[in-house]
Design a protein around this nucleic acid. Structure first.
Length: 860
RNA sequence: GGGGGUGUGGUGGAAUGGUAGACGCAACAGACUUAAAAUCUGUCGUCCGUAAUGGAUGUGCGAGUUCGAGUCUCGCCACCCCCA
């Protein structure tokens, strides 16, 4: 008999036993309701970190709870295994990316297995295996067939460190690469794109279906898609046949246009520039090229521009206005040209003030004579009444917007237009370790898709990684040169590989039927399990992965299943029903504010007054995301080695609500370990009941039973609703405390308490509860037990605590027999000494009774 | 500038409009021990009184709604995130 809690022995024993029993193999035969629990799969960097642990433990608790509640649960794991670090390892250490990746996978898998996760490992996938990327390529071909994959020349984001292009979503707010952190450059290149813009409207409107997603993530996606409703208006150029098309969301301000601006890159720029402005325009274009997009459009930056010397005509007024070029207009957005309305746009106002361009107000806060308007000191961007606008004067600006678009359409000045901020997704990468794009370039036939039967296009293995001279695939003649599948003439393979975000955009569709080598998946099986009932991952994917995955789901839904489109592959619109974005794991970070250097915690002697061990100056203490460069990482192995994984799981779940950042604190981990030890002793000290359960329960038994059933109710609600694991763990503690203090240790109710406590704790601390389950004489795994139901009758107390308030102020409490009858409660309250003390000599004007809770006396 | 979020003890955090601070951590006091650890018991927002089962005050600030506001409404302030 074990007398002390020894996590190490228990944990490895049960992990092995569960594997042997196939306890977590997915139930594919029963008719139970399904539940698909999914964590965002990891990149196999080589080491598990605390962020992973938090992510997978959350999903595991959900999966375990659902299983006990009688669901068949799909809880798989896999590897987002293509990507640059593998290739960098090859360059730096001469190890092949595949070898490096599979070694990391093996190591991380063994680390994951120590977390006691209820994962079905039979469904493990790795995106870098040909069995998987064959289907990534298959999807690409379907995209191509459907006109959703195409090549185009354009100005693209170039990461100078990773030596590859990036999609817009992969460049952060500071203009840096999401991966390397390098400042992204602009380059003109021919690249492959997916036409995500075709689905912009669906991606936007279907956000409404996602009531199980955090509001924040939905807002971020809506902002990213960036729908704006406005118009394209055409401004003829004086002395030329071309017109400048501007996109505007404010057609109601068209009578206030005082200039038109072209993006410096706009093809018309060169054409319209007059000879005496040519030098200035050329110089300006060269300068703008050196600026990042962020610098160009940030509102606090000065707006700069030069006139082209040409004039355009405002079709509404017939007035001639100058054509400028300016840095704040981007060729990639809208039509690459805007109309300048300084009176009603903040940036235009600044620009016009700077270059002394006229400012004409055409919207006023209230209807008034335009001659009375005071000169504007800032742009007026609100809605209002139209002035100075010919026949539209007097309209409110919202109505005017519609009227002006109608007028433009009738007179051929332009048309209403919906514009999205979302750009097409650039998916080609000039790197080796990714899924090859299955296309062949033939001098005669052009770009030809690889026939489906020839998939996968395997990555060649005999490749040299020098880190110089671009994509190593392009240099491998034996691989590049192939006969054209269409005409047989010598042709060349596409050497770009796909963005790794392509691989991860559909993996969740593969798990339900992971071993299928005939089809991407059997639609019957995938449609049965999908959508994912609970998806858990980091907020950093709010736009990136989650937007791409939604896009893929819609496209795959719209593919036929190979029978000419009769059968749809998917029968749902959205892949992830509920989304939980877990917070970061942070830990204490020491920084010397003078030198800006991070200090290793091990070298900080006095944690209360930390000082730099070298300079002796006081250190700045913060909580930051764990990272190597900040020396603040906590290795999961260390914690597990010291306390066991059950303690780590409980701590992570208890310390903070799942969506908030979690501050790692060793003392709190200790506290959690102490709780598990208390729990162990409590269960081990329990003896079989010696009294019988027949007859009336004693007060102590009733109280304990109420506590037990309250805990069942509270924990079930915490796990079924908004995932409040922290309060669920605290309920476990309360129940444990209540049992410890209970005065009926030989009663069957006490035994019920111990058993319920173990069942309720099982999803959280699976190893310890399993061990105790066996030690207390049960057979079968605790994880196959049914989740407990609470008995509403047990929650009813004989006596309740009634709060006495006078004038809304709490004055005390009394114990009264439980009743819902207001008159009885009021009578009890009136009799109490508390009430008498505070109402003495005053008239009670009104009494408010909240049955079961309180009585409030209003006195005069 | 627009949108979203957050603000509660020394600290992490709890509170269907109904006793604010559950449950932990830290701290302090005590028991046990030769001693320490572990364990157990107690105290723990602030101020006043300290005989209390006492009083006042208290959830960023200011108003409002309500019998009653951490919670709802309005206006500020600070910080964070996203978009410009």
């Amino acid at each position: 008999m074990e007398n002390t809690y020894n996590p190490a022995g228990i944990e490895s024993k049960w992990q092995q036993s569960w594997t042997e029993q196939n306890l977590y193999k997915t139930d594919t035969t029963s008719s139970k309701p399904k539940f698909y629990a999914l964590s965002m799969f990891p990149y196999p960097s080589g080491n598990l970190h605390m962020g992973h642990v938090r992510n997978y433990v959350i999903t595991d608790v959900v999966a375990r709870h659902k299983r006990m509640q009688g669901h068949r649960v799909l809880h798989p794991m896999g590897w987002d295994a293509f990507g640059l670090p593998a290739e960098n390892a090859a360059i730096e250490r001469g190890i092949h990316p595949a070898t490096w990746t599979y070694q990391n996978i093996a190591h991380m898998r063994s680390q994951l297995q120590k977390l006691g996760l209820s994962i079905d490992w039979d469904r493990e996938i790795a995106t870098c295996s040909p069995e998987y990327y064959r289907w990534t390529q298959w999807i690409f071909l379907k995209f191509y067939e459907g006109g959703l994959a195409y090549q185009k020349d354009g100005m693209v984001n170039w990461d100078p460190i990773d030596q590859t292009v990036l999609a817009n979503e992969q460049v952060d707010g500071d203009g840096r690469s999401w991966r390397s952190g390098a400042i992204v450059e602009k380059k003109a290149l021919k690249q492959w794109y997916f036409k995500i813009t075709e689905y912009a409207e669906q991606l936007l409107t279907d956000l409404d279906q996602l009531s199980g997603w955090p509001e924040k993530v939905r807002t971020m996606q809506a902002n990213w898609i960036g729908k704006s409703i406005g118009a394209n208006l055409e401004f003829p150029i004086v002395g030329a046949s071309e017109k400048i098309t501007v996109f505007t969301t404010r057609p109601d301000t068209v009578y206030g246009v005082s200039y038109v601006v072209l993006a410096p890159e706009h093809p018309l720029t060169v054409q319209v520039t007059t000879s005496d402005q040519k030098a200035a325009v050329d110089a300006f274009i060269a300068e703008v090229k050196r600026q990042s997009e962020i610098d160009r459009t940030a509102e606090d930056q000065p707006k700069r521009g030069v006139p082209t010397g040409a004039m355009a005509i405002n079709p509404f007024t017939g007035a001639e206005v100058p054509i400028w070029i300016a840095d704040y207009v981007l060729y990639e957005y809208g039509t690459g040209a805007v109309m300048g309305v300084p009176a009603h746009d903040v940036r235009d106002f600044k620009f016009a003030t700077q270059y002394q361009l006229p400012i004409t107000q055409v919207i006023a806060a209230t209807a008034q004579d335009p001659s009375n308007l005071a000169p504007l000191t800032a742009a007026y961007t609100e809605a209002g009444t139209i002035v100075n606008s010919s026949q539209f004067d007097g309209l409110d600006s919202v109505t005017a917007k519609k009227s002006i678009i109608e007028y433009a359409e009738q007179h051929g000045y332009g048309n209403g237009k919906i514009q999205y901020r979302l750009r097409d997704w650039l998916i080609s990468r000039q790197r080796y370790w990714g899924a090859p794009i299955p296309m062949i370039h033939c001098p005669k036939c052009g770009t030809v898709p690889v026939p489906e039967a020839d998939l996968p296009v395997r990555l060649p293995e005999d490749v040299e990684f020098t880190g110089k001279g671009g994509n190593p695939l392009a240099q491998l003649e034996s691989w590049v040169n192939v006969p054209c599948p269409s005409c047989g003439a010598p042709a060349k393979r596409e050497t770009d590989t796909m963005d790794t975000f392509v691989d991860s955009s559909w993996y969740f569709l593969r798990y339900p039927d992971a071993g299928n080598d005939e089809q991407i998946f059997d639609p019957k099986i995938t449609n049965d399990w999908m959508p994912v009932d609970q998806y858990v991952g980091g907020i950093e994917h709010a736009v990136l992965h989650l937007l791409y995955a939604r896009f893929f789901t819609k496209i795959v839904r719209d593919f036929g299943a190979g029978d000419g489109g009769k059968t749809k592959l998917l029968n749902f619109d959205e892949p992830f029903k509920y989304l939980l974005t877990q917070g970061m794991v942070q830990s204490t970070t020491y920084k010397n504010p003078q030198t800006g250097k991070y200090i290793e915690p091990a070298t900080v002697l006095d944690r209360a007054h930390p000082t730099d061990p070298v300079t002796g100056s006081a250190l700045e203490v913060t909580f930051d995301k764990m990272s190597k460069s900040k020396y603040n990482g906590i290795a999961p192995e260390e914690v597990i080695g010291k306390y066991g994984v059950d303690t780590a799981r409980m701590f992570i779940l208890f310390k903070a609500p799942p969506e908030k950042d979690l501050e790692w604190d060793d003392a709190d981990v200790e506290g959690q370990f102490r709780f598990l030890n208390r729990l162990w002793r409590l269960v081990m000290a329990a003896k079989p009941a010696t009294t019988s359960s027949s007859g009336e329960l004693s007060k102590s038994e009733k109280d304990l039973r109420r506590f037990i059933h309250h805990a069942i109710q509270a924990i079930t609600e915490d796990l079924d609703g908004d995932y409040q694991f922290n309060t669920a763990v605290s309920e476990l503690m309360k129940l444990s405390n209540a049992i410890t203090d209970a005065d009926c240790k030989d009663s069957p109710i006490y035994a019920e308490g111990i058993e319920t406590l173990l069942i309720l704790a099982a999803p959280f601390a699976p190893h310890m509860t399993e061990e105790l389950w066996q030690l207390t004489g049960h057979t079968g795994s605790i994880h196959e037990q049914s989740w407990r139901q609470f008995d509403p009758a047990a929650l009813v107390a004989d006596e309740i605590t009634l709060v006495i308030q006078v004038m809304g102020k709490t004055r005390g409490t009394i114990q009264v027999p439980a009743t819902k009858d207001s008159a009885t409660l009021e009578a009890h309250a009136r009799e109490s000494a508390i009430t008498k003390k505070f109402t003495e000599g005053k008239e009670i004007k009104k009494v408010i009774v909240v049955p079961g809770k309180l009585v409030n006396f209003i006195i005069g």
